[in-house]
Write a protein that binds this DNA or RNA. Sequence first.
DNA 1: ATCAGCTAGGCAAACGTATGCCTGATTGGC
DNA 2: GCCAATCAGGCATACGTTTGCCTAGCTGAT
Lengths: 338, 338
Amino acid sequence: MAPVSSLVEVARAAGVAVSTASRVLNGSSHPISAATRARVIAAAERLGYSPSALARALVSRSTRLMGVLVSDIVNPYFSVIARGVDDVASRAGYVTMLSNVDRRTDIEINRMKTMRDYRAAGVIFAGSGYVDDPQAQELAASVRQAQEQGIQVVSLTMRDLDCPVITSDAQTAAYDITDHLISLGHRRIDFIEGPPGMVASKQRRDGFLACMRDAGLAEAAQCHPGGFDYEAGHAATMRIIPRPPLPDAILAANDEAAVGALNALRQAHIDVPGQVSVAGIDDLRVAQFVGLTTVSLPLYEMGAMAARHIIDNPTGTGSATTTMLSHRLIPRETTARR
Amino acid sequence: MAPVSSLVEVARAAGVAVSTASRVLNGSSHPISAATRARVIAAAERLGYSPSALARALVSRSTRLMGVLVSDIVNPYFSVIARGVDDVASRAGYVTMLSNVDRRTDIEINRMKTMRDYRAAGVIFAGSGYVDDPQAQELAASVRQAQEQGIQVVSLTMRDLDCPVITSDAQTAAYDITDHLISLGHRRIDFIEGPPGMVASKQRRDGFLACMRDAGLAEAAQCHPGGFDYEAGHAATMRIIPRPPLPDAILAANDEAAVGALNALRQAHIDVPGQVSVAGIDDLRVAQFVGLTTVSLPLYEMGAMAARHIIDNPTGTGSATTTMLSHRLIPRETTARR
DNA sequence: ATCAGCTAGGCAAACGTATGCCTGATTGGC
DNA sequence: GCCAATCAGGCATACGTTTGCCTAGCTGAT
């Protein structure tokens, strides 16, 4: 149905051999006369030639496809990462293949397989895994097979994959924001956890608990089941409010849940930060909108660095190093000195 | 460098011809004995065989790659669309290729070309174009070439591309939300515009102005330069506040700008909705957080339908139809009767 | 015994590109 | 005027699939 003009047609139109056409269109080092070069370029232009990246990949045994697996692209945490990936990828002539895996390991395995079928140059795992995930081993195996095939794998969180990790220390971030709350004079601090079972949830809770313990406030630390979304933060706070006394501060496992907590408090006419301080983790855009005190994680940089790593390491020779990017405390208006 | 076991190795390991191996692994209708079938499957399993989607695409002359061009994936407007696309794409075995084009036509042209090189099954244009864009013609030409090659192109906004459009009526949405404000008794309404030059900005402003005119309030309609982000809405409102009298209501071209307006007002101790009502357009997640009155656009559905269209129309025979999805008014707490 | 029809499997061409190797022509040095 | 070197270009193979066509054996009907 379509005049998918190929290199042979370009060559014929220019009156040269296919190899010659290929060489001028690729900027090969092989010498080509200016006249021939011009004829080929003109022919390609006239025919609207579009080189088949598929055929090219087949023979060169490498693509410029950058895979990235996120939990949910609608979640700003991941869309910022994806943006970091795509910025460096597309600048290097790569195209990014994105997949939502909904925090399901089986889908991750499936998508990893698809990206392998397409011979992606690399695959970035942006999402966290589960503690004691029964499918972790199967995932690790599929990752290993991909690596043996020359596919670079990078993880943005600590998980049981034998691959380089480019991440930020979420646990220390949680520790630091807790420490900040304590330094403001807060003693009783309630923590709204992330989704149950996730490593990311555990890290953040552990950071909170470690700081409370170090401050001698282990007794005053209270954890509530929650989640990473607005509704979870709101619901958890609605359970906190009717059981006085109110805590001095509420720390949520991430910003969106913190905003949920914030709204729940204000809807109950509890003054923030007058009566209760509220803080989150991540520094998403919404934190800025509502003036939420939080700790900024280098999400964009993590995505960008992961993509750069994949582009710069043509062979799968990189050892499984861990790169830790630093975070930064962002005090805003939802916290105050007690 | 890697044991990228190919079909020929699987065939050899199973002691059959390549064609036979191909047929059992593809579920071909060609008859194959159960014993042979089992041997091939076992061999493929043992060797960790991963079929090359590239080679397959080359001979079958079609890929399962779904292209989508967004302005900025961090913008929730686009991430919701992308999610709609990916949900139906991945369920159909496609993988979605995402590109950020930063509202730049030249980048759009470039990415369209890249997706063409990869022989994407289809490309979805999620972003709006510019009024009188000097590069529109060049973009249209590159789209035409792609279509001639059998690539399905779908646009999610009205723009000068000869392709099917699956969209929502932003102009009428703006009209309806304006009408709602008027029905609440507001007369003087200020409109914060979107980014200058964009068709999407013009549509929304036109809808606002049309409604004000129809209500005999043309004199009371005032437009301010703005943008689609928080900062633009905030800044525009900061210019409105010091010039009394305050308007009865502020309508922003989208939700994020509306939130910026909301915060600017509250920071100036102006009661919303007591003194001034505020409304937006899009119904992004943040609108729900802050209780913003807005109008819901079917972004997820637009993305999903576009992907479905591409998957269901194998040949490029679809005429350039326009599908209009309906929006819905979402009254919340930032508007009140005057 | 013959033959049509079916089953099971193999051969080989094609998809579109890159590239190692070869050839013929031209040049420069002596 | 001869040889080596360089320049310009072509031939052919390989990448990993799919699929049309062919063959060999077998079954059952005549």
